[in-house]
Design a protein around this nucleic acid. Structure first.
Lengths: 137, 137
DNA sequence: TTCTTGATTTAGAATAGTTCTAAATAACAA
DNA sequence: TTGTTATTTAGAACTATTCTAAATCAAGAA
């Protein structure tokens, strides 16, 4: 699945539209997580920034990711296995498959897996977290 | 759902059957997690031990929980939300509902939720982690 | 411009949960 | 007993993340 890569100017507009002031750091992080990265962790973003941005502190990385999540441009999730938080630019409702050998995550949509709840009225469901584990070849 | 509580002697036999030497600490922890507790965290086990056992270190709590998991007497899982590991004496395949207000976990079986995978052969699924979020009343 | 004010970024400290380490203790076998 | 191994312990170390307080920056007012 190829990803359309946005220009800094387009990223800037997206940030403005979300009422996030588009600083250089935010544009850089947003561009990376929205266009280049695939389910990155904060560490991965920091590593990318160290290699591609003049200077960015870890606090700013976490900060910015948090801001993007709050702005609705990014989803945050903690996987059942690693204790780490990963970020997902696919903000629609969807599920995941994790390759236990490589740790790689794959997005799954509702054509690929379905969850059918028969819970009684005592359970009001507001969200579904589903991760299939296994091996991808 | 009432839980049948095992005597220390019965716990001891279970540990022996699983090739785990039944020390006083292990019997105490096993009895608590298998009979009394409901999805406890390591912290909860430690708190119980502080109140009900002469002296137990946190390392022993983690150690013992790890041993019980390896022995197949207990399941370990990390929830999507809290970063904490919780332990589940229900070792059969099952899912969970988490009340986001209280944090309380409910076991769900396959009569209550079903997962239907239509993944192509490239995905070999070996496990399914499903957590429904919401509110229970 | 220059100033002011508030937002942002920063380094490093602090925190939370867990694992590791090395020494002390307990249990078992001979 | 004595020797050997397993278990337990306290505390250090570690990882991921958040917090803090100071420095820097940016946009509007003068």
């Amino acid at each position: 699945m190829k990803k359309v890569c946005l220009s800094p100017a387009e990223i800037e507009r997206r940030l403005e539209d979300a009422n996030v002031r588009p600083t250089a750091q935010r544009i850089a992080v947003a561009r990376y997580v929205l266009c280049e990265a695939d389910h990155p962790t904060a560490d991965a973003v920091k590593a990318w920034a160290d290699a591609n941005f003049p200077k960015m502190s870890l606090a700013t990385v976490y900060n910015t990711l948090g801001i993007l999540v709050k702005a609705g441009l990014l989803k945050e999730m903690r996987l059942p296995h690693t204790g780490k938080t990963v970020y997902d630019d696919n903000i629609s409702d969807h599920y995941h498959f994790v390759d236990e050998k490589t740790g790689k995550l794959y997005d799954l949509d509702e054509t690929q897996v379905q969850v059918a709840s028969k819970l009684d009225g005592g359970f009001k469901v507001t969200g579904v977290d589903l991760v299939l584990r296994g091996e991808k070849r």
